[in-house]
Design a protein around this nucleic acid. Structure first.
Lengths: 109, 109
DNA sequence: TCATACTATCGTAATATTGCGATATAATAG
DNA sequence: CTATTATATCGCAATATTACGATAGTATGA
């Protein structure tokens, strides 16, 4: 086992879970926050900002890129990453919709 | 390795990542959505709703409980789970704050 | 008390994630 | 062309997650 049974869930449920997963690591949260803060695109000084090895940062960047959250363009010998506004908005909308669905003031048990 | 280096991140980053992780599985999304839909507290008919074994559902419920998102009270021979409104609101606020932090219309690269 | 129904936990197998050193790849500078 | 710099990928080890059968625990009803 150890394999998520995604076939028994809806497309939306799988997608939302995958979005959450993309952000379910402090390094990726930190990367996003850094990209947000330094509006300008930032490349591999993330390696210095966070205390992780270059290979590890690169791997996290790849996951964020796969999730669509960031995009990178080659800038000389380095790569310039920044947040993808379109995907960001999709995430925002999806998360909002999820959290808006429940608005009870008091628990029932 | 395989051990997240949480000590190099801020408290907030770790917490937010953990919140995301709690929802980073379609089964847990489905459980929450089911609890939202059937306002009333629902117990182990989740096993029938989703197509997972009872032990698996129980495990996911435990994780959601650890995350604070749901609470369960014993109701006769079964357990009645429901969403914890307080935690739900904390999640909503935390996620909102995260997604509000960036609001650029166009990417810079 | 004893059987029944429901849930939690244990143990285990399969797979995924995290982190990093080593190495490959790509672009620039000299 | 060669050296340098920056990033990506490979391969591995350690750990985490997912799923489930088996079993233990707990409350109800006969």
């Amino acid at each position: 086992m150890g394999l998520t049974k995604s076939e028994i869930f809806t497309e939306k449920q799988n997608k939302l879970a995958q979005m959450m997963k993309a952000l379910a690591h402090p390094a990726r949260i930190a990367i996003i926050q850094h990209l947000v803060k330094t509006q300008a695109c930032i490349c591999g000084d993330l390696v210095e900002e966070l205390g992780l090895a270059q290979a590890t940062i690169s791997q996290h960047l790849k996951e964020l890129k796969n999730a669509g959250l960031i995009q990178g363009t080659i800038d000389g010998t380095s790569v310039c990453y920044c947040i993808s506004p379109k995907a960001w908005n999709q995430y925002k909308v999806a998360f909002d919709a999820f959290f808006v669905s429940f608005d009870n003031k008091d628990s029932c048990c």
